[in-house]
């Protein structure tokens, strides 16, 4: 069997009295295509924050490629191959698209520690960034500032930055959020075309997307895992339909 890229054991988090993660046991195999769904406020984003280390859990543990990383900083976890995108853009708005991606690459390769040689002479960093932009058809926007870019293209930059980290585990928090449906297929095509060996967890509200993309689905409700299963199992699950899917899905 393939090794687990990511695992959480009894991961819990409370915001005061509000439990947002309740003993979550979660497993992501290498190269997985996994979707995390659940109603608004279910704790999906919080779960990602716990995995990346942006939030400290109340209890439980996070494991990357078999190693316990619960005590490690965000930076140390990134070094171990974890990358994420944000539900709401977190970009360097005053910088160019190219610089945004270079930032990730420079951190990954260690170039960002250099203090005296100009970044302009770091051809390898710039070339790698341009290659990623090309891949995501952002090449023509390389020199534009983020804040001058349409929102849909900014969402692509979120993914480009994550790819600059060469992740083994990629966590995508509603990658098409805020993008008109007509444009969202561009994002989804990109996500589907990413290297197969990257284990991916996607949070997504659009069920069509979820069923198209995922081979496994976890349903989270009020911080608790309701059920884990294949798309067809989830679609057929009565409890899921009650709390979440309602009658919206055509996949029943």
């Amino acid at each position: 069997m393939t090794a687990l890229a990511l695992e959480t054991r009894a991961l819990s988090k409370n915001f005061g009295a509000l439990p947002v993660a309740q003993a979550i046991d979660f497993r992501l195999a290498s190269g997985a295509r996994h979707a995390l769904i659940g109603p608004n406020g279910a704790g999906k984003t919080t779960f990602i924050n716990l995995i990346t280390g942006a939030l400290k859990p109340s209890s439980g543990s996070v494991h990357l490629a078999g190693a316990d990383v619960t005590a490690l900083s965000q930076a140390a976890r990134v070094k171990r191959g974890i990358a994420r995108t944000f539900q709401i853009n977190q970009l360097y708005r005053g910088l160019s698209v190219l610089e945004n991606v270079c930032m990730a690459i420079a951190e990954r390769t260690g170039a960002a520690r250099a203090m005296f040689r100009p970044i302009g002479r770091r051809g390898e960093v710039i070339d790698e960034a341009l290659a990623i932009l090309e891949l995501l058809s952002l090449g023509d926007d390389a020199d534009r500032l983020i804040r001058e870019l349409p929102y849909g293209r900014q969402r692509l930059v979120e993914i480009a930055i994550a790819l600059g980290l060469k992740p083994r585990v990629l966590l995508l928090d509603e990658p098409a959020a805020g993008v008109p449906t007509a444009e969202s297929h561009v994002l989804l095509d990109v996500i589907e075309s990413l290297p197969a060996e990257i284990a991916m967890l996607i949070i997504e509200h659009d069920m069509d997307v979820v069923f198209r993309f995922a081979r496994e689905i976890t349903v989270l409700v009020a911080g608790e895992v309701l059920v884990v299963g294949t798309p067809s199992e989830i679609a057929a699950n009565e409890r899921v339909r009650e709390v979440y899917l309602g009658k919206k899905t055509r996949h029943g």
Binding site: Q74, R108, A112
Partner: peptide, 21 residues
């Protein structure tokens, strides 16, 4: 330098800076 560039990154978006490690 790349270091200086990453300082700008901290100013522009510190959350993202953490997220790129």
């Amino acid at each position: 330098s790349p270091f200086g560039q990453s300082l700008t990154g901290i100013r522009e978006n510190i959350r993202r800076m953490h997220a790129v490690g």
